[in-house]
Design a protein around this nucleic acid. Structure first.
Length: 906
RNA sequence: GCGCGAUUAGCUCAGUUGGUAGAGCAAUCCGUUUACACCGGAAAGGUCGCAGGUUCGAGUCCUGCAUCGCGCACCA
């Protein structure tokens, strides 16, 4: 009996998120509107619209998404949908992070648990295959979860920190930094993780409080204090402050013999201002191999350094009778021996912080090792003699990058100012192998950048007659074509071309020869590559071009020649071959329009499914060129590559531009970099944010993003950190199953400002699932009560209804301003409150009387049909599923709400 | 040790440039059953951590203190 007004059946039932969400997400994907190019192609975004771009902080492929990820996806999706509705050319770019150490140790644990094996039992190759399989599974889970959150990510541009494109970026970055002297290899003190058997960076350590003993030991005429007697075997330098009156008799460089753990030793007096006169006795001996501070002192005074502890935490032969013992076992025995020799003066209880590895929990043992470092203090000629440190500080100080909330600026400055050289080599298998090769003399070889020009042949007979000329056509050049080739040759004289490769088809070959003659290159040196020929068109060969559209599209659609997969395979093999071509200067490749476009698409990272659209946009004229580059690994004989891999943050640091195709000069890079916003957790400000600023300012002279928005930690409903041991971890997908994505999104965003932690309880989510239903019923009420309204004519609003519309418009103005200030938490709350407690409780109630009585009935109805779409549009970024579903139900002839206009322009 | 943040109703938190304290949940009372019981209405509930200061006026600005939390550094 409800349904006498043609109200859709589904609207009569309560809102069911479950039945709606997957269907709506599929519709969004189908539309292609997550991809900004398709938005332009289909005319929902203007080609000259202002770009908005953001990269997704790539989740680690170590498992599944947690509530922190969910919050990140919610905030970023709100930003993205808002930008898209404002008509911006909007790109939100997805990806995942290989998270080298984290992922490898996870797989190691599984291997240990399930098969009782260590990675060495499998070998590098087999082990990496296991890691890749694990990473792939994690990736699939993560992508599935992100989709359920409603994330409007452009999946066609998805990236991985360890894929081929990103590897090119890593090798390019490494080589440029190496050639600028910013990356060096050296024996320096590093943080060694004895359990993980790898070096880690300063930021991958956590300090843990430890209760231990502090020993006062007799060392000749001195008493020295130490908490680590097991490092003291080789200690022959005794250090004091130059101003310490107590030790004024001793001069720097004095030598004296003292009785020590394993007999007498010649000690040397060193005076250094790093000594704290107040601490202990004001005298210490130093162990440069196993202490950062001691190492620095030893460097200042050019002292000897000796290793005492090996990679596994065992004592070396220098320890005499203690050699081979684990340091943890040795300590008590060493003290016992010192006591028996009467060298222990006293022992105190002592509390201090010890450095542990974040991933493995092992106590860090500083070691001097030959590792790779990024020098943060070296002036860079190409960057105005600024150091990397200065490059990192400048954009923040000069407000080119805005940080929200701004209190994190100080945290950032503090960290950069204390920054030491960044150790980037890791002794693990999973990751980007360090792109360095050693010859038998130990000399270092790094990849070289090779510049390549793609050219298209001059006009051919077939071109002139507008006929298909594919991979078998022998169609020769026309006179015009020869003239074009000659002209191109002239133009290329300034390009330092030293080698030419040509397709094996006559029109390309002839073009190449004409160019060679112009450039003074021996035509017989031209290499012919048959797999660089034009794509095959089957029996379309020599038939006329289609009336409309491009020949490539028709050829692929005809399925008579090569398919996209075959073409892509050929593109990949050409690139593979290019990697071993040797020449000093620029390499010229003379080929064909269609295949060159596919080469360009490959360079730009376009998926083969979109090669055709890409080719349409990027058609090459006869005798035109396109530049790109590739990195060539060294080809000398008998080279061995460095065994180590790079710190995962090295590749993450390139993320804003490696995802856009850098080092190629891609269309995406020009359009979308610097990115508009970086939204991430404040816990990775140093790991990631700082390193992106470093890499971007150094490598491309551009900031990576204009605004940084930090979100806080998601805690449980009682404000406790979620942890396995507390058993209070909630899975966002479980919550979605129960309450719907929109409810979860609202619960996560309302009241959660930048930088502050938030509590997520089920009650809150439940409340917003009720709100979803309320919105559902509002739409139903509006539909049911306005079906008789003649929408072909405008109805005048009475004062009251006009006031309602004015009120909504002023609310929209207010929230638009707040959206632009990133105050999403306020906007969500205001929309919620207005919709429920003003619009539903007051406005709709009032309209009931008017509609029932017939007095000003049309005004009330007009007001309702005006107000509803305004609210749906404004709520869309926050509750995308239900608003889209209602939009489609009520306005089924229109665009998806996804690409509708934001209801307020200011 | 240095720095940062928090402290507002029973709970969780808003409070934008200083102008009579606000929401959700919980608890209380009443109502309604054709937009919605995943509902409506009403009332209740706070010396805004403490102490000073600036101001006509301070939750908001300044100083100090307390408690909780976080980050950085670390001395053998």
């Amino acid at each position: 009996m409800h349904n006498d007004n043609n109200i859709p059946e589904k609207l009569l039932k309560p809102y069911s998120a479950k039945d709606t969400e997957s269907r709506i997400y599929a519709e969004w994907l189908e539309s292609g509107f997550f991809n900004p190019d398709i938005c332009v192609e289909k005319g929902v975004t203007k080609a000259d619209a202002e770009p908005f771009s953001m990269v997704l902080p790539p989740p680690n492929v170590t498992g599944t998404l947690h509530t922190g990820h969910a919050l990140m996806l919610v905030i970023e999706d709100i930003m993205t949908r808002y930008a898209r509705m404002q008509g911006k050319r909007t790109l939100w770019l997805p990806g995942t992070d290989h998270a080298a150490i984290a992922t490898q140790s996870k797989v190691e644990k599984i291997l240990e648990k399930e098969e009782g094996k260590r990675k060495q039992d499998l070998g590098r190759e087999e082990f990496l295959a296991r890691v890749n399989k694990f990473a792939q599974e994690s990736h699939d889970t993560i992508v599935g979860q992100a989709k359920r959150m409603g994330a409007s990510l452009d999946w066609s541009r998805e990236a991985f920190t360890l894929d081929a494109t990103r590897n090119l970026a890593v090798r390019t970055a490494f080589s440029r930094m190496y050639n600028d002297g910013l990356i060096y290899r050296g024996h320096r003190i590093v943080n060694w993780d004895p359990k993980g058997q790898t070096v880690i960076s300063d930021d991958e350590m956590v300090y843990v409080e430890e209760k231990t003993k502090f020993y006062y030991l007799k060392y000749g005429p001195f008493t020295i204090g130490t908490a680590r007697p097991e490092t003291k075997f080789g200690d022959k330098y005794v250090v004091m402050h130059p101003d310490d009156a107590r030790y004024a008799n001793f001069k720097h460089g004095d030598k004296l013999t003292v009785e020590w753990i394993n007999g007498p030793i010649e000690a040397i007096i060193i005076k250094d201002e790093a000594i704290d006169m107040e601490f202990g006795t004001g005298v210490m001996t130093i162990t440069p191999w196993h202490s950062v501070v001691d190492f620095e002192m030893a460097e200042r005074h050019k002292l000897d350094k000796e290793q005492i502890i090996d990679k596994y935490g065992k004592l070396l032969p220098v320890a005499g009778e203690f050699a081979g013992m684990k340091i943890t076992d040795a300590r008590a025995k060493i003290i016992a021996k010192l006591e028996s020799k009467g060298l222990v003066e006293k022992t105190e209880d002592y509390v201090h912080n010890i450095a542990t590895a974040e991933r493995t929990g092992a106590t860090i043992e500083p070691q001097v090792m030959n590792q790779w470092f990024v020098n943060v203090n070296k002036p860079i000629a190409g960057r105005g003699n600024k150091t990397l440190k200065e490059l990192m500080l400048e954009p923040i100080r000069e407000k080119q990058i805005e940080i929200l909330p701004d209190r994190f600026e100080n945290v950032y400055y503090n960290w950069v100012n204390n920054l030491r050289d960044w150790c980037i080599s890791r002794q693990i298998w999973y990751g980007h192998r360090i792109p360095v090769w050693y010859d038998k003399d130990g000399a270092i070889h790094v990849p070289k950048e090779r510049r390549i020009l793609l050219a298209r042949h001059g006009e051919s007979e077939a071109n002139k007659l507008r006929l298909f000329a594919g991979g078998r056509s022998q169609s020769p050049l026309t006179d015009t074509g020869r003239a074009q080739a000659k002209e191109l040759g002239e133009k290329l004289k300034s390009e330092n071309i030293t080698k030419i490769i040509s397709s094996n088809l006559p029109r390309a070959r002839e073009t190449a020869e004409i160019i060679a003659k112009e450039l003074g290159i021996d035509p017989s040196s031209i290499e012919e590559w048959s797999d660089y020929r034009e794509y095959e068109v089957g029996d379309l060969e020599n038939t006329p071009w289609p009336e409309k559209g491009i020949p490539f599209r028709t050829a692929i659609a005809s399925q008579k020649g090569e398919n996209l997969a075959q073409i892509e395979q050929r593109v990949v093999s050409v690139f593979k071959k290019l990697e071993s071509v040797e020449t000093e200067g620029t390499l010229l490749m003379v080929g064909h329009n269609g295949f060159n476009c596919c080469m360009k698409a490959h360079i730009e990272g376009v998926q083969k499914e979109r090669f055709v659209e890409f080719a349409e946009l990027c058609t090459m004229e006869n005798a035109s060129t396109h530049e790109f580059m590739l990195m060539q690994n060294p080809t000398e004989e008998n080279l061995t590559q460095d065994e180590d891999t790079l710190d995962t943050w090295f590749s993450s640091g390139l993320w804003t531009f490696s995802t856009l195709g850098w080092p190629q000069k891609t269309h995406d890079l020009k359009m979308f970099h610097p990115t508009s916003v970086l939204e991430t957790g404040h816990d990775i400000i140093f790991f990631w944010v700082a390193r992106m600023i470093l890499m971007s300012t150094y490598l491309i002279g551009e900031i990576p993003f204009k605004t940084v928005y930090f979100h806080g930690l998601v805690r449980d409903e009682k404000g406790r950190k979620m942890s396995k041991s507390l058993g209070n971890i909630v899975d966002p997908i479980t919550l979605i199953d129960k309450y719907g994505t929109d409810a979860l999104r609202m619960a996560m965003i309302v009241g959660v400002g930048p930088g502050s932690d938030s509590n997520l309880g089920e009650e809150k989510i439940k409340a917003y699932s009720k709100f979803a239903n309320k919105l559902w019923n509002i739409a139903r009420f509006v539909m049911e009560n306005t079906t008789k309204l003649d929408t072909t004519q405008a109805h005048t609003l009475d004062t009251e209804d006009q006031a309602t519309i004015d009120e909504i418009n002023s609310l929209l103005k207010e929230i638009t301003k707040e959206m632009n200030e990133y105050k999403f938490y306020l906007v969500a709350e205001k929309l919620y409150h207005y919709t429920w407690h003003t619009f539903a409780d007051i406005v709709i109630e009032r309209s009931k009387n008017k509609i029932a009585s017939g007095t000003n009935s049309e005004s009330a109805q007009q007001m309702l049909v005006t107000a509803l779409p305004l609210l749906l549009r404004a709520l869309h970024p926050f509750m995308p599923y239900i608003t889209e579903e209602l939009w489609n139900t009520v306005y089924n002839d229109k665009n998806l709400l996804l690409v509708e206009e934001w209801p307020c322009k200011i």
